[in-house]
Structure formats: structure tokens, C-alpha cells
Design a protein around this nucleic acid. Structure first.
Lengths: 349, 349
DNA sequence: AAATTTTGCTTAAACGCTTAAGCAAATATA
DNA sequence: TATATTTGCTTAAGCGTTTAAGCAAAATTT
């Protein structure tokens, strides 16, 4: 590693002070009244030495790192990694760089990550908060630390979310319109507002359609040991006696895991069971029949989150800023009856 | 934001010098010969003030940031985001934090990202290099900058990859054993070694089985405007006249895109076309029939990459360190004939 | 010609930390 | 008792920036 060139190197070679060099290279030559000739010389030498300012030193001095910390449940989940990609691009455009990390829906880990990021001097945090992290979040808000929540939220914070109630209501309603009346929902076992809203939307839609809700229809599974829980739950709910005929999955991971179980247990979709999921997934497109889903604009989420975060950093926003992103139900064959007697084009009978 | 407590705050409250506080809090009280009582007082006050060292200041002084930069083609691709997750965890365990970014297989962007990371003082880089980035990579190597390549590689660097030739050879061989003899391959149109090896493995396997390779079988598509290229290519190759009966996809994104086209064009898998892909994907599991694929241990890739990177940082490794990870062909129904006349369990006829 | 303003630069402190070097007092060795 | 060593601490420089303040020389105004 050949040593980096510093302001001092340039200053010495030119026989001027580092202050002068700093002014020029920060385009402050006017307000610092630097002579034209000197400006020229400094610019030229800096270019020829390929001078790059030391960002660490600058950060120490300015207290800013031009860095954003992002905490999601799991960066390997396509839903989050897609948002991450948007955030990365938007942040980069505005000269910020992003740390990503995964909380695994664990409050302790979340606290560790938040502390670590603050400690590393990130200028803002974008967080998809997990259960039991409200205290951590409130602390940040009280400290006026620039913070934007995504996907999930606590009242009083800056956040970017969809109208979970409405989205879920619409999805449920759609299944009912498609002729289903024994509709189950699988959700995470959490007190988080977004989940509660999805469940409330589901139940309200049932009620508004005079369908009496059956306790066994609502399946809540915990994030830990998810695969096992899902497997058990699916086995239970799909026994002929309970026989539900519609299913709403509150996230794409729940849907993917469940569908894997369903296809191995002889359930026919949508004949036996009509299916709608939240979020999107390549798997929903390749599954036969293609899975209906609630589409959130990941672009809008990522873009808005970065926007809000930067406005907070700059101190531009006052009260809590809350953005509700459009969610749209994409209806496909998993939730509507297929045309009678037609065969799937790609399936071998 | 209530101001952070610094060494100076502690030192002043205790009426000692900052040096003393620094020694104690870095557990150097022995070599600095600090008195027992003083150690106690410093520790206690630091704890009660919840002192956290300023990492920026420390970095400026030490020249280390405890930070690793990761550059992949696209962090929203599940293959990369899964590796990212492993890297994140492994790095965190060893007190490093990770910047992720996406090069979009673009050499210019790659250069920008590398410069930016270096410039931000990352201690090491982990890169899945794109075409035409060899110069950038060579420069880093020459500068002895800690660098590990993953997935793709240039000779002479530190890297973690699979034996692409062998994996591809095996996959092709498997299709041949399964009775196919007009086997196509879709790969990226790139001079990158890993792709060339996959293609070579495929062609060698054909040759070793006395199958005469037909030029039209090898389809190379460019990363830009991928979806359109794939669509066109699939339409071409699957016309009855050309009629291939087996297909190898060199990456999961190629497979996912192609399968979407295939299912909409009446091709039956595996009856008409047996399919094997590289990498893995939820979509491969939910697709019917489940897709056979070459499984690379993402865990091993991520873990080894971090290991190598940290060893480079610590100056422990000498010559180029090259790790070849196991790849295993996971055979499923997309590449073998189904039992005659049996119906899919989850499909409605 | 004297007083004022402008120009072109330097000095120096600050950001918060690390660490080599130094110094006086206490203790050990001769 | 004089000398050497150890102990417990401080000083100060340095990491690479930024930026307010200051200062002499030149240019302008009276």
C-alpha cells in the first residue's frame, strides 16, 4: 500500500499552508480569498497526485459520516434485499453509503445493532423494527436521532408503510368474491402493529361479509423455528374436517414455506384452496398456478425512506413524517377458479 | 442528541489525564503501570457514564476502520443476498461491519465503488468481479490491498469459488445419462473465467459422450436488457425444428427468467425438456416439477471469504489463497422422467 | 500623505483517540 | 546514605481535516 497523499503533502510541495489547500479543494477559494494563480497550482497538483480527502479525518472534524445504517429482519429475504437495493441506489445518488444488517426479529440483537451503528457514527438509521424494540426506537426518537421505520411502525415515528388493514381487507374480500367462505390466515405471532392490522383487515372483511370467524382459521407462528411451526400448522388446518377453502399469508416467507408443504400433501390450488400472499417473490411467478399477491412498491418504500432520512439529517422535517405507500392486489390463478377442463400448458399429464 | 461522553470528560471529572483513561479502558493498565485505585475509579466512572469510544477518532489514529466492503453484481439477487447474510454474520462475529453494494456487472460502476470504498478506508474488499474489471483488481493486488474474490475470479488473486468445469460437466453428464442428447446451455455473454469454465464443462461432457455439439445450442445473453434477450432466445431454441431436449442454465436468474417464458409456451418439463440450473432459489422448489440444480454451499463461500479477508488484513497469508468449495448436483424431477401416468399431487386436471 | 479597505496568505485550535517519552516521588539496592 | 530502580502519573505529538482569527502587504479611499 503506497501511502495516500494528504493536504499536507500538497501544501509542502507548493510551499503553502494546508489551510489554503483545504479551502481551494473545497471550492471555498472565494470566501477565503485565495489568489487565482495559487488556486490553479493547487488544483493542478491535487489532480496530478490524485489527491483524495481522508473521509475519516473529515468525519471526525464534521461529526458527519455520510453513512446510513439499515436494519431489517433478514437481508437474505428477497423482500428486504430488494428494498436494500433501492436504498443503496438512492443513498449513493446522494453521496451516502449504507451499512446493512439483520436483526432476525430479535430485540436484543436489534439493540446491539442500533448501538453499534450509533457508535460508528451513522448519520441516520432506517429500520424495519421487530417486536419488543419499541423502547429502543422511542429512545432514538427522544434523542432526535434521524430515524425512519419501514414495513413496520410505531406511532409517533417517521415511517413508510402500506395501509395494511386495507390491503388485507381487499385480499380477503377478493377470496370471498371468488366464492370462498372458510378462509384461513397465517401470520406471525407478534404484537407488531402491521401484523395486527393485517389480521384486523382479514377479520373485518369476514365480518362485513357475514362470515362467522372460526378461531382455528387464524394461525400465528413464531419466527423462531419457523419451518417446523409452519409444517405443523399446515397439516392441521388442511385436514378434511376443518377444511378451509381459502388462505391468506401475511408475508412471502410464510407463503413459500407453506406452499412447499401444501404441494407435498395433495392439496390442489385453487380447487381445494385459494391462495393469496403479501409481498412478492420469483417463486410466486413460477409456482403453478401463479400466486396472487399484495404488491407493495418496493421502489417507493426505499426511495421514500431515504428521502425522509436525509431530510431528518438536514433538520428539514418537523413533526413525525408518515408515508403510506400504495398496495395493489395482483390477482392470478391461485385465487380464482381455472377455466373448466383446460389443462395447464406446461404440465405433463 | 445529548452529547457523547469522551475520554476527556472522564479524565476531567477524575482529575487525571486522558492518557490514563485511555490506557485503562484499553486494558493496558499493566504496561502503562496505572495504580489499582485509579483503574477502579476510571472503570467505574466509564461504566456509569456509559462511555463508548469514538470509533472515527480511533480509526483516524489507527488507520483501521474494522470495516469490509462487499461488491456483488446485485444485492437483490437471492444468490448474493444469501452470501451477504453469511458475510454479515461472520464479519460481525469478528467485530467487523460490512458495506454492501451492487456493480450491476458494470466495470465503470465497479471502479467507482472500489475507489469509494478504499477512500472510505475499508480494511478489505470482498468482490464478485465483473467483466473488464481485471485491471482494477490487479491494481488492488499490486498495492497489496486485502482482497478476496468470490463466485468469479482472476488467476493470481485470493478467491473462493466452486470447480465450475466439473460442476457443469456433471450436470451435463446427468442429463445425458437421463437420456437426453440435444442439450442446450444458456450462459452470460462474458469472458469471465467462471462462465467459460461452465461452458467448457458442458461441451466437454457432450464430447466425452460422443454428442456432436450444435452451435445453436449455446445461447449467450448479455446482462443488459436481460429479460428481452432471454425471451427471444427461448423462443428460438424451442421451435420444434431445433428441438433441444435438455437445458442447462448457468445461473439462477437465467433459469428463473427462462422458466417464466417456457411455462407460457407450452413446453413440458421434463417430458419435452429436461432442465438443470446453477445456484438455488425458492422458485426452484415451488416450480413444478422441482428444478434440479448445482448447489454451492453459500455458507462456505461467505465464511471462507471473510476468513481469507481477515487473514490478509492481519498479514497472515503469503501467496495467493485459493479455495474451492464443494458443489453438488441436486437431482429432482425437472431433469428425470416422471413415473408414467402419475399425476402431480397439487395440480388440478 | 494618512487612513482605510482589500487581498493573500498563515496560525492555531479543534474533532477524540493512542502512545512514546519524560518526570518526580516512592521504593529497593548497594 | 548514596544510587539505582520502580511506580504512577503527565505531556505532547500525531492521525488529516476544517475554519475562525489574525497579520502584513498592496490597493483604495480620503
Amino acid at each position: 500500500m503506497n501511502k495516500k497523499v494528504s493536504l499536507k503533502d500538497i501544501a509542502e510541495q507548493l510551499g503553502v499552508s494546508t489551510a489554503l489547500v483545504s479551502y481551494v479543494l473545497n471550492n471555498k477559494e472565494r470566501k477565503a480569498r485565495v489568489g487565482d494563480e495559487t488556486v490553479r497550482k493547487i488544483r493542478q497538483l491535487a489532480a496530478s497526485l490524485d489527491y483524495q480527502p481522508n473521509i475519516i479525518a473529515r468525519s471526525l472534524q464534521s461529526g458527519k459520516t455520510n453513512t446510513i445504517g439499515v436494519i431489517v429482519a433478514d437481508i437474505s429475504n428477497p423482500f428486504f434485499s430488494s428494498i436494500a437495493r433501492i436504498i443503496e441506489d438512492e443513498a449513493m445518488k446522494r453521496d451516502y453509503v449504507v451499512f446493512f444488517s439483520s436483526s432476525d426479529e430479535d430485540a436484543d440483537k436489534s439493540k446491539q445493532l442500533i448501538d453499534m451503528f450509533i457508535h460508528r457514527g451513522v448519520d441516520a438509521l432506517i429500520i424495519a423494527p421487530s417486536e419488543n424494540t419499541e423502547k429502543q426506537i422511542r429512545r432514538l426518537i427522544k434523542q432526535r436521532f434521524p430515524l425512519v421505520l419501514i414495513d413496520r411502525y410505531f406511532p409517533g415515528s417517521d415511517y413508510v408503510v402500506i395501509d395494511n388493514f386495507q390491503a388485507s381487507y381487499n385480499a380477503t374480500n377478493h377470496l370471498i368474491q371468488a366464492g370462498r367462505n372458510r378462509i384461513a390466515m397465517m401470520a406471525y405471532d407478534t404484537g407488531m402493529e402491521h401484523m395486527k392490522e393485517r389480521i384486523r383487515g382479514y377479520r373485518t372483511a369476514l365480518k362485513d361479509n357475514n362470515i362467522r370467524f372460526d378461531d382455528s382459521w387464524l394461525i400465528t407462528v413464531s419466527y423462531q423455528d419457523l419451518a417446523r411451526h409452519v409444517r405443523k400448522a399446515i397439516k392441521n388446518i388442511t385436514t378434511p374436517t376443518l377444511g378451509v377453502d381459502g388462505f391468506i399469508f401475511a408475508t412471502n416467507s410464510l407463503a413459500v414455506l407453506s406452499l412447499k408443504v401444501l404441494i407435498s400433501s395433495g392439496i390442489r390450488i385453487p380447487t381445494h384452496l385459494a391462495v393469496v400472499s403479501f409481498d412478492e417473490s420469483d417463486a410466486f411467478d413460477l409456482f403453478y398456478p401463479p400466486v396472487s399477491y399484495v404488491r407493495q412498491s418496493l421502489y417507493d418504500i426505499g426511495k421514500s425512506a431515504v428521502d425522509l432520512a436525509l431530510r431528518r439529517i438536514k433538520g428539514e422535517s418537523k413533526g413525525p413524517q408518515q408515508i403510506v405507500i400504495d398496495a395493489r392486489l395482483v390477482v392470478r390463478e391461485s385465487s380464482i377458479m381455472p377455466p373448466p377442463l383446460s389443462n395447464s400448458p406446461h404440465y405433463n399429464v
